[in-house]
Structures are given as C-alpha cells and as structure tokens.
Amino acid sequence: MRYRLILLAACLALACSAARGADHSESERMIERYSSEPGAEVTVIRGGDLTRYGLSEYRSLTLPDVTATTLDAIAGAVKADLEASTAREVSYRDGRIKYAFLTLAPTGEGLNRYVIFVCNPAHNGRRRVVLIAIEGKATARQLQNLIKITSK
C-alpha cells in the first residue's frame, strides 16, 4: 500500500512537471540550458513590479561571447518558436536571424507569451546573444511600447 502511494505521488509529480514543461517554449529551455555558460547573465523576475506593466514573468539570458555551436542551438530554438508563433517580427542578416519578436500561443492560464531574440556582433568576431522570454497579460503592442528596441 505504501509503495503504491509513493508510485502514485511520483507519477503525479512527473505529470505536473510535464504539464509545466508543455507551457515552456524552446527559447525558455535555451535560457535554462545556457544559464551556466561562462559570462552568462540571467535575469528572472516574477511578480512584484512586473505587475505594474501587466507582466507576470520575465526571463532573460545574455551571452556576451557565444560560440558558433551555442549560437546554432539558440537560433534553432528561436526558429522552432518562430514556426509555432502566432505573430512575428523578424529580421535576418546573412541568412541568420538577427532580431525576432515572437508572440507565442497563450499559456493554459491565458497569459500571453513573447520571445525576443537579438544577435549582435561581439568584439572578437563572435556574437552577443540576448534571449528574453516574457509572460503576462500585456499585449504585444503594449510590450513593444514598453521595451525600447533601437538599432544603431
């Protein structure tokens, strides 16, 4: 009886974990996966001041000096999200995604999901990558008004 209970709890935990994972975009997985890369800067904000902007969660990963392999993996994830996105704003350079603002399907709780990807040149010919995943009730227009994206 005791073992059955443990097994049931384990299955429930697995199911909950899978259910939570289903809401995660490929880009979010990349943020988790590369968060311990050398020089990686990860910012996670939940609730608090975010609610003022109609947002509930903000995750960002900045890799200041990304290798080609890592860049390919991240760009691949962004491409996968791009294909699944409901709205997108993408610019390419030399056949690669340089900038993407993706609106993904809402979460089970009805929160909007967004992914922002930026690939900038770094000092040594490598790339500096910023990957942001945002959840909240804010619309894409509100988010674009909130986050200033400039090209110089």
Binding site: Y58, K148, S151, K152
Partner: peptide, 15 residues
C-alpha cells in the same frame, strides 16, 4: 558595419 540592436527594458533598469 553591422548595426547593434539595443534592448532597453525599463523594469530591469529600475531594478
């Protein structure tokens, strides 16, 4: 010259 895209997130700046 490849342009550099800059992202300014106000709540990150405030934090």
């Amino acid at each position: 010259h490849e342009p550099v895209i800059d992202i300014d997130v106000p709540f990150i700046r405030e934090t």
